[in-house]
Design a protein around this nucleic acid. Structure first.
Length: 221
DNA sequence: CTAATGATGTCCT
DNA sequence: GGACATCATTAGA
């Protein structure tokens, strides 16, 4: 494949520019919509998996009582305090992993949670990885919804805490980002699963998504 | 379609 | 010891 092999055409396929992640976390969240998440083969000869980011949430440290950084720096959230463009992966509810992209300058603990992606390449491998990650046998949804949830993103792409701290703006990283086409219409809503944080954290519209995607984790009312 | 609930390990008080 | 940025199943309208 010499020319015109980009999945979305145009400039898609270029490494994701770190400067899109170095400013405010909401700008970074918006920039990540439409970008591609790339998972290199886990074994020699294995398939490359790629997926389009269609749903994210912004978490701002310090001011944000829903953020893992609200208590300050801990062993778990240390990557949030590091440079932008790196991964912060944590275990939630004792069994699921969630992937975040760290944003903002060093010392400002902000991150964007990847809540849903739409499979592009390596879909069979995503199905297999998802089945293996789930404890109980489960019925699979149609391909477009295989990774319609933050823990499903990690399950489909084989991401766990060993990926925490990886540089996602380095195309040699086993997991990294590529540029893609921004959505035509962006939906906004309150963040999911953070009722404990109280106002104003529960009401602020920091969940963003491609309104046209069939892969969203929940509807936006 | 909605609501209720269990599984399960790590972090923080 | 309590709480948790979730998912899938079950029960019921």
């Amino acid at each position: 494949m010499s020319t015109g092999s980009g999945p979305a055409g145009g400039t898609a396929g270029a490494v994701f520019p770190r400067e899109h992640l170095s400013g405010d976390v909401l700008d970074a969240a918006r920039a990540l919509l439409g970008a591609e998440l790339v998972r290199l083969p886990e074994h020699p000869g294995g398939p490359v998996r790629t997926a389009r980011i269609v749903e994210v949430e912004a978490y701002r440290g310090r001011d944000d009582l829903a953020s893992h950084a609200r208590m300050g720096r801990t062993v778990r959230n240390a990557p949030m305090f590091g440079p932008p463009g790196h991964a912060y992966v944590y275990l939630v509810y004792g069994m699921h992993h969630c992937l975040n992209v760290v944003t903002g300058p060093v010392g400002a603990p902000a991150a964007v949670l990847i809540r849903a992606v739409e499979p592009i390449l390596g879909i069979a491998a995503m199905r297999d990885a998802r089945t293996a990650a789930m404890r109980r046998p489960a019925a699979l949804p149609r391909d477009s919804r295989l990774a319609a949830g933050p823990a499903l993103v990690c399950a489909c792409l084989g991401i766990d805490r060993t990926a925490s701290g990886l540089d996602l703006c380095d195309m040699t990283s086993p997991v990294h980002l590529r540029s893609g086409d921004a959505p035509a219409i962006v939906a906004a809503g309150p963040r999911i699963g953070i009722g404990y944080a109280g106002e104003p954290a529960v009401s602020v519209l920091w969940r963003l998504a491609d309104a046209a995607s069939p892969a969203l984790s929940r509807s936006f009312a």
